[in-house]
Write a protein that binds this DNA or RNA. Structure first.
Lengths: 236, 236
DNA sequence: TGATCTTTTGTACGATAGTACAAATCACAT
DNA sequence: ATGTGATTTGTACTATCGTACAAAAGATCA
């Protein structure tokens, strides 16, 4: 009883389009936007360079479509998990649940294949580092709402911490998350094989625990405002 | 009594060479390696494209020279600060001093101009995200020793925390540090102007406090090993 | 001043980039 | 089977890339 798609529908044979998207995602996430040519993508997808133009018009259009494909599902999942986390009674547990609601979809937002979420998050990290214009616009539009929702939720769990501090610490969380996906092998190397940087579950746990502790740190201006040294010169 | 440089010395007129290095550093750090052309760099430095080839042979050579210029001074400064930090008696203060010894030179390693340290660290962040080969080699060679030294020092201050956890948390520190330099405007935006992401001193304090708290978090396997969930499917 | 070395300029070359477009091919409704 | 619209292919165009290299310009010292 599977409905046959009619010819009026855009994708009669979605395989190639999907293959191009997947290949582009992987290559962009690994090498950056400018280092990857349309020909590279086509070759990796087993397609003709012209097909990329046909499906996505331009290279920017291809990147745009990758974002469109992932942003919705990922933020939806984050919203669901955040709503559930807000209902946790115990404050400590709630904070952890909130952080987890932020982190887990970044690793596993399963809009498609296994590892798709991590791949897309890594892509976002790389685009962010490269200052990609297309990505910058989408991110500010799509993710700031989510970020504010999480910051608000965290603030509710930690009312004694100034919002500014929470913004900074959430920012650090995102940076740590990005970096874990960009260079997981560094963790394996520095731990001399004791830890596997590519293990998503392990990374998530480490990240959640570290972030919860960071968020719970005393407010900055209550710690030692006098300690702030002027940025030191190179002399000791 | 200033010694006149003889013609045997390589740099009779270092201005242009320095200008090219500075321009390349700025452009690479902002836009990534592949997005910036040699002509862009030459134009920004007010030089001729041929001059870049003359001084640095290749584009990779230019990047290499940027690293050579900064790595030494920065790691030297880190070593000095780390040695001083190790002498701090109070364990809590020592831990903070160690983290500060890692973070401060990344923002201010003053091998040259103001902000040079932050610019170079941002460059490293971007090269790391792009998976740049030249950078990868240098980083593994030059920075792993430093990283291990810091991990060891932290471990001495926190002997009850497994080394694996410390590696992860130090990794998060570097990721947060990188990200703070890559997109400082995000902090300003999310805090609605209450915080200035470009303020190095503020970023350092926030980063140090958050990291110290994260490092002091209970060891992972002592927390709730049973809590580890399998990476969830997309279904709620 | 003129010889010599360093640095800068200008130009050019081959490779590859993104994209356009016509022709060929495919899938399906009739 | 055949026509029709969707897709894929092949090719070509222009722009720009990194780099090479000869000539011009600048600096230094006998």
């Amino acid at each position: 009883m599977i409905r046959k798609p009619t010819s009026k529908e855009t994708a009669r044979k979605p395989n190639m389009r999907e293959a191009i998207l997947a290949a582009a995602e992987e290559l962009f996430a690994t090498n950056g936007f400018n280092a990857v040519s349309v020909r590279d993508i086509a070759h990796a997808a087993g397609a003709n360079p012209g097909s990329v133009t046909y499906h996505f018009k331009t290279k920017d259009g291809l990147l745009l479509e990758i974002y469109r494909r992932h942003c919705g599902p990922m933020n939806l999942r984050r919203s669901e998990l955040l709503a559930a986390a807000r209902r946790v009674r115990d404050l400590q547990d709630r904070l952890e649940a909130i952080v987890r609601a932020y982190v887990v979809p970044a690793f596993t937002s399963g809009s498609d294949l296994a590892g798709g979420g991590a791949r897309f998050t890594r892509l976002r990290a790389v685009m962010s580092a490269e200052g990609n214009e297309v990505a910058r616009k989408i991110i500010a539009q799509t993710f700031d709402d989510t970020s504010h929702a999480f910051i608000d939720a965290i603030h509710e769990s930690l009312p004694h911490i100034p919002r500014t501090d929470i913004v900074w610490r959430s920012h650090f969380l995102l940076g740590a998350l990005y970096y874990s996906l960009v260079t997981p092998e560094r963790v394996s190397r520095l731990s001399r094989g004791e830890a596997d940087g590519s293990d998503a579950a392990g990374a998530i746990e480490q990240l959640v625990q570290a972030t919860v502790a960071a968020l719970q740190a005393p407010a900055l201006d209550q710690v030692a405002p006098a300690r702030r040294r002027p940025v030191a010169s190179s002399k000791t």
